[in-house]
Design a protein around this nucleic acid. Structure first.
Lengths: 218, 218, 218, 218
DNA sequence: CATGAATGAGTATTCATTCAT
DNA sequence: CATGAATGAATACTCATTCAT
């Protein structure tokens, strides 16, 4: 069901004429293709189903390429998460501006979130976290991709709370942690019951709370 | 790191004289041992690392026993989740009473939650959810074990909100959903950074909010 | 597709009131059920697919019963072949009489053969022979079930050739061998292409030859 | 008991300098070795005994190679049948010529047949057919290897019947079917009783009939 | 630069068989 | 008399990984 959203290569700049892969090819292209393949495999097949074969098959190249370019499967997976995460974060940053009211902010976020959910990019994170217990090496890489989001969310919260009377009292860091955890939890729960209106309902709750907060004056 | 907490067999009643396992033995004991083994394997090795070998090894019996008693690994896994989930839910139900104030309630829950987190029983759920993408058959079983928790949380919220002035306005079902999702999200995030004080901080936030709510009068 | 034809118990005599199986049951009944199960499993699943599980499942009893009653799977299989073979042979003997002309004889045989083919009883033999290479112990048992057929066929040929001028010159033993081998070969070939009109065409050839032979005078 | 006869590689031309097997080796050699191993395993151990282990062991390579090169055991098996069948058919074609009398033809065939029987190549076919019930996927492959033989036999019969007065009346297609089925049936019967003079006796019968037919004028 | 070939160790699952009851 | 429980060894197949080219 996930809609296709451009994976790596966040920008739309014209890519140079794609040479075919093989001897004398552009190594970056292969790497990019592998990363895209890893992303789509993680989304479609989950962490357990994401094997060298599955990735190489999707990338249309040899399994050995994974080792040649990334040194191993897990390293490729981390790279994939990084690319995906950075791409999405950039999108969020460009779509949210400082002068939005709390209500506007939440509306904007909801739109982005739906993009995430539908494209499957959120799933990437939860799938990889699921692999941590079996493969602890993943942890560090995941954390690195996670961290920028937290500072970003915290910042947004700080900014938004300016328009609220008791704003300065809000523990923006903890709230950021809460919001981020909640998003992840919702994603996981969606996997269980496929009940995608859960996020809708929670956003409605958010709008309600935002309305209440704003009406309490700046 | 998870502390050992008795898995199946919620009660502490003296178990009847344990016959040795083997041909002609008590099958229930073997089943129980397999379930316990599955639980501990899921906690220690994750979904990906929980193989027939790993389970049978922990249970001290032959891999074939898994198939004899449960028909397959996934079936054993959801049986394990069910046992674990029911056991924990019973514990929650017996530990929380109707006449607790909101603040008391939260304090009680925090205690139980720490038990969950430390024993690893919460991890069971997230590990299995991680397997859904690769093995969709798990979904139904997970959902079945999840559902009772939601109704339980909802009831608690309804009960607790009576002591709050605007309590009747609260969408208890959505809040239950939110709380449950948040717990799951936190568990997942803990796996990433091992930052176990996150829950402490969030509970503090909860206490704060509870205090605010209660001070607004009943 | 094989039509059901009563397996063991060649006669239609009233069977004594069937007690259920279990402690104090009639051992003969269990044996009979196991044999019938083995026959149908060989027909449906082939030699490779005929496992203890498959047989016991069809017989509705425990796998251990096979060992208790027959000592092993192969022994049960041999017993099954024997029962099936004897049953069919009895049917042939009762359906063919001495005073049939060659043409009548062939017509009668065709009818019986179609029974065999459709019920799958012929398949029993070829499936078991397929197992000989892997399990040489089968050989003797199969040979024992095969031998009576050859003497029977030889006798029929001898009798029938009396109505043919050059009848005494015919090497009836070799011809019996030929006919029997041909039947087996046809059965095997049918498995490959499912072309069941092959036997029809060959019987037509037989009728032609019979007509020719008879027209040459007695 | 089967005598060794070169399996694949019908010609005796000097094979190019055989590189050792292993990473980066000539894949054709590995494939050939696997096919030869499959053939000899089918002959020696039968269909039931022909496992990945047995084949890889005989080929001196890893079981996984079977899957790498053929995708699965059954596919390797039908590849083996194809190679064997084509090799033998080529041998037959080169050994039989148009200008042979019926008697000469039968004599020539007898010689070839003895080769088949002794080398075990005929057994290949019957073993695989025995597997059809359990593994229907084999059917198509077997049929494909079978079909050329039928057209070949039919042609031979047509050609030979020219030297017989009533030759044009002969239903060569049905006769081809009969002959081929008979050969298969005889092979199977040989497995049961090890009575290898059966074919001798049948060939004698054939010679007799041929003599009769030829004496009836062209 | 990249890959085809190969493999050892592993996967889930099923086998025939045994034994205590 | 018969069976439920159990198992060691096998089954087909896939894994991540390596290496020669």
């Amino acid at each position: 069901m996930p809609k296709k959203v451009p994976e790596s290569g966040e920008s739309e700049e014209a890519t140079p004429p794609k040479r075919k892969r093989g001897r004398g090819a552009d190594p970056e292209q292969t790497k990019t293709e592998l990363i895209d393949a890893a992303i789509s495999s993680l989304i479609d097949e989950g962490y357990r189903g994401t094997t060298a074969r599955s990735i190489a098959g999707r990338a249309g190249c040899n399994q050995a390429a994974i080792y040649y370019h990334f040194g191993g499967i897990d390293d490729l997976l981390i790279a994939a998460l990084k690319v995906s995460s950075q791409g999405r974060l950039a999108r969020y940053k460009s779509a949210l501006s400082d002068d939005q009211s709390l209500t506007e902010l939440i509306a904007a976020i909801e739109e982005l979130y739906v993009e995430d959910r539908e494209s499957g990019h959120l799933s990437l994170l939860t799938e990889l976290v699921g692999g941590i217990t079996a493969t602890p090496e993943l942890r560090q890489g995941i954390e690195a991709s996670t961290e920028p989001w937290l500072t970003f969310v915290e910042e947004r919260i700080k900014q938004a709370s300016k328009s609220v009377s008791f704003g300065k009292m809000l523990p923006s860091k903890d709230l950021a942690d809460l919001v981020f955890s909640l998003v992840i939890g919702v994603e996981l729960r969606n996997k269980v019951d496929g009940n995608f209106d859960r996020s809708d309902r929670l956003f409605r709750l958010g709008h309600l709370a935002a309305g209440l907060a704003e009406s309490s004056g700046s």
